[in-house]
Design a protein around this nucleic acid. Structure first.
Lengths: 190, 190, 190, 190
DNA sequence: AATGAATGAGAATTCATTCAT
DNA sequence: TATGAATGAATTCTCATTCAT
């Protein structure tokens, strides 16, 4: 792919992100995406073979970015507590930034095995990063602990996405809360 | 509604539950539901005004049952730990029983405000029950704690729904794990 | 099927006949057929599962009528020559009546096995009727003779369909010509 | 056109022949033809202005070859019977060689006047060759006789194309059969 | 002359919903 | 109250053709 093509590829994914995110998979038309990306309908199909595949590609790009940034963020912190804060901050920040794209997290194409595969792979990688971190600090049942922490964070997305009075500063409070709760809970797990 | 009508109403909801659960909202046809319920397509519309409304009604019935049983279960236990175990057991058991209806938890109609309203209302009630419980035991930030506990439990549904090797006895282990982790974490919150 | 439904079924086939006949399979839209039949597009699909199936059904009805009328016509004649005249007359008359539906005989859906099956079955039946007739009169190689006669007649359809100056009285001349030629040719085949 | 261009022109026609023949006009894509011919899609349009025109050109080349070879074959034979055998042999041999390209004879673009014109012109020339031959031998109604002979032969293509058990030696039998039948039939026409 | 990326018109089919019986 | 035949809006994807390079 030439640079021009890579750019176009990304423009399509950007357009798809906004429309799928705002309206959901089934409520978004391919023609809308094409229009928003500034290209013809047919061109979409030069880059993605179907609507499902476009959605999956879009999600994959987002997942990869999420994990990349997480890994970057973790490099700068040393203590477990700091690292957990980074994770929490990154997780909640992610949803805060995307609070206008709620549909992304509740609607996805139904029977697409590639999409399911992508989601499962993402969760596995995410959990593995955390679990490795916890194991390094001597915790038993690191994987279950990792899932629990992610669970705590993920439940908080509900407020972020649906509570209109939720402010940016509330994010930091939640970060502290989740990290403390989890750290305390963990201590007995060693 | 006469008893006959109530029965028919429930039969439709049963049929809808199985089909929506197995195939998702968009992949389920009203005609399939009618057939499974043993009635004519048109009759569906005597009981529910639209596909969305049928889905919402079905979900609502399920939510209500969930909360009802939870409340019943909590009546028999005294200590906080016992009660948390009941909650965890109920939450994870619910998903274990429904592990063949995965689509229910990932596919729902997109732009239906009544459905969103129903979900939010359910979560609120669920959280309130837990929060009240925790407040009664003297915890600060009871609502956030409640959400965290639910978050931990809800993340575990991923394994239950998607890990084919997940057994019934694994459920109890998770119950213990989640309760312990949370209890320990909470202790410092008083 | 109720009488109303049978009538509607036939009306659709009539509409399909005219449009497919005038414009060909690929150039005819389902919506046009629906409009001509005075029903909604969706209704078409209550009677026929696809465009191909509609075309095949239409052809089948026509084939059956062709053979039925042929059999009827043959009942009234005794001598071989009379019978051959009836066949020729029926064959050429058929095309003369349909000279505005040329597309029917040159365009058909491509890869539809059911359609091919239908055509082959029709030819086989047509040939068998003639062959049986010839065998009854003591001819050897009756099947090949039958095919030859049909071949002679069928080549004449070209003039009927494409020569604008072809008149109804020309049909009778051709009938006489084809029958004589064939009879004379046959005589040595006994 | 330079020699290189003529070669390319023929290569395109070869590719078109195989694909149209195997799959039919509507089921063959221009891009497939380009790929098979080893050139780019756009290049096709430097040689042929449209898909229809490409099909027509391909058919025309085939028709011309057919008539050329027929004329060549007729030069070597003297008696009427020999000549008719040559015609029959050529006609049936043509279809036998092309028995894998059935679609060519049943699928063609529908509404292209140039194509229709080409077919009619071919038939006219074919018939004229035969008719001239028959007139030279003193037959009346030579044109109708010619058409009849072609009709007999053309009906036999059905078996050649669709009967999988049809062998090369069956071709010769048919040649003899058709020629005899026709000769006998003709005798009374003088 | 050759390329192939881009275009966009075009049509079959599905299915929620209605309403006459 | 129950039926199911009829409706028609709505959308994906294909592919012949163009044109900037």
């Amino acid at each position: 792919m030439s640079q021009v093509q890579v750019d176009k590829w990304n423009m399509i994914l950007d357009a798809a992100y906004e429309l799928f995110g705002a309206n959901g998979f089934y409520e978004t038309k391919m023609s809308d995406i094409a229009e928003r990306a500034g290209i013809a309908k047919g061109t979409l199909y030069l880059y993605f073979s179907s609507k499902e595949q476009l959605f999956t590609a879009m999600t994959k790009r987002d997942f990869e970015q999420f994990l990349e940034r997480l890994t970057d963020g973790l490099q700068q912190s040393e203590s477990l507590k700091d690292r957990l804060s980074v994770v929490a901050s990154h997780h909640l920040g992610y949803f805060y930034e995307r609070r206008d794209y709620t549909k992304l997290f509740f609607m996805m194409p139904n029977n697409d095995p590639e999409m399911l595969q992508e989601i499962q792979s993402f969760i596995m990688q995410y959990i593995r990063i955390l679990a490795t971190m916890l194991e390094g600090d001597g915790f038993r049942e690191a994987k279950l602990l990792a899932k629990s922490f992610v669970g705590i964070l993920d439940m908080m997305k509900m407020d972020i996405l649906f509570d209109p009075s939720f402010q940016e500063e509330d994010v930091s409070q939640r970060v502290v809360f989740a990290t403390d709760l989890f750290m305390n809970g963990c201590m007995h797990q060693k």
